[in-house]
Structure formats: structure tokens, C-alpha cells
Amino acid sequence: MTSLSLARGVRRKSRRGATGGSGAFYAFISPWLIGTVLLTLFPLGYALWISFTNWDGISPSQNWIGLENYADALAEPQMWASLQRTGLLAVAIVPLTICGGLGLALLLNEKVRWRSGLRMLVYLPAIVPPVAATLTWKLLFDRDSGAINGFLAIFGADAVSWMTGNMVFVVLLVVMLWGIGAGVLINLAALQDVPTELHEAARLDGANAFAAFWHVTLPSISPVLLFQVITTTIGVLQTFVPALLLSPATGPAAITAVPEANRIFMVDVYAQYFAYSRYGYASAMLWLFFLAVLVVTIITFKVSGRTVFYAVDPSEEGKQK
């Protein structure tokens, strides 16, 4: 009896402890939870509701039109064209950012003179506000007074109309690659975390520099690379501000003046919302895009399962505890 009471007492105490712990847990995460509900889940749900209407954003009436906006979006060549441009942007930017960032990080990880200064120089563009950087590039690429054409003129080349036609897409690529230093910093941190004994072991086994990089360094930093692939992909797919700032017009007219080559998905969505007042249609576009990004992310995770190596197997981590 005594032992039973004791056992019950322990169990009760344990339950109280657990309750108190979970209370503290929820108290600590409540700001985030409240923020998520109010600023993410509610807008998502509201956008979902709007996507089934033909609301124009200011009219008092909202007519329920079912899946019409989704059908219109899927049948709209302009939407597919903007999606294609966004895909092209991602295909160009993601590998260049990841590989370029890794390459620069490998160089800056070597013991060279003025290494700290060089690291700072590479990272500096990443802390320049994107708006300032984009507008600066816009001036540099100006056909008649830009420095880029000024430089080309030294070699007798004719001025290039960078801000029109397909060339403006090149400018967008340059603007987006300008901030590559942020990836360099992450890669540098990952490289410095690779155990030196692994490299020593590889060297003893006769591995050359490339083999050591391929079989030791790359697997070791692969989780960091996966993180960058996913965040960079999502970031590139959501690109909006640089494309808008490269528009020849300013103010409210800017969105509709974005050159066709730069009419990526988010530009199209924004234009549908605020230039064409098609709130329902634009919301449907966003939901379709959300699903597409979700699929891309899942595929990336699935594919990465065979190529990413963890020091601790994430699936085993919980069991060890």
C-alpha cells in the first residue's frame, strides 16, 4: 500500500512537472505561434477565400466563382510564361550562387595574405541594401551614361541597350549574383568545421587535393549546401524587388512597365493585384505557386537523401536520446 501510494505520488509529481514544463514551453513559443496564426495562417486562409471570388480589392461585393480563377490561371499563357522565366532564373541563380559561393569560400579558406580584408570585401556587397545595389546597377547599365557601356566603348564596341529586350534579364542576374557573399560566409563557416583529422587521413591514404575535396570536404558540408539550395531556391522563386526596381518607370506605373524579360512570377502576381485589381485571380496564382514550391522542396529533400551526409543521422538522433 505504502509503495503504491509512493508510486502514485511520484507519478503525480511527474505529471505536474510535465504540465509545468509544457506550459513554459508554450509560453515561450506563444509570440511565434500568435504571429504565425495572425500573420501567416490567417492571410493564407483569407487569400484562399479570395481566390474563389472575383473581388477587385475595393468593391464592396465579392462574387463566389468557385475554381474559375484557378482554371483561368492554368489556361493563361502569360502565367506560364512568367513561371518559365522564374524557373529559368532559378536554374541560373541557384547553381551559380551555390557553386560560386563555395568556390570563393574555398579560396578564402586558404592561408593567403590579406585574407581578412578579402573576406570582408567579398561579404561587403551582401550587406548593401538591395534597393541601393539595384539602383546602382541600373545606373551602371544605362545605355547612354552608364559605366558599363563606357568601358565597352574603350574597345570600340557600340553601346548596348541593357535595360530593354532580353538584356534586362542579364542585368537582373547580375544584380542577384551581387549578393553572393552571404553564401560565402556560410560556406566558410562550414569549411572550418570539417575535422582536420579527416583530411589528414585522406592525405595519408594518398588522396590528392581534388579527391580530398570530393570525398571529404563536400560530404562534410553537404547539409549546409542542402540548406543553401533550399533557401536560395525559395528566395529566387520569390524574387520581386530587383525586377521592380529595374523597371524603367517609377511609382505606381513601375509594375506595368517591367520589361517582358523580367516579368517573373511575383511581378505578374503583384501586377494582377495592384495594376489590374484582380485580387481573386492573383490569390489563385499565389496558391498555385505555393503548391509548386512545396513540390519543388519535397523533391529536393527526396533527391538530397542520397547525397547529403550527416555527422549524426537525423532519423537516429531521437532514438539515441
Binding site: 541600373k138 529586350g165 524603367p248 511609382g251 512597365a257
Partner: peptide, 19 residues
């Protein structure tokens, strides 16, 4: 034009600069 946009966004700067 729309295909060769005014980089200044309005006509005063290029008119003032005789462009």
C-alpha cells in the same frame, strides 16, 4: 518609348540636359 524607356522616368532631367 516603352521599348527604349526614359531612364529618368520623366522628361525634365533629359530636357534640362539637352538629351
Amino acid at each position: 518609348t516603352l521599348l527604349d524607356p526614359n531612364p529618368d522616368g520623366w522628361d525634365w532631367p533629359p530636357f534640362d540636359a539637352k538629351r
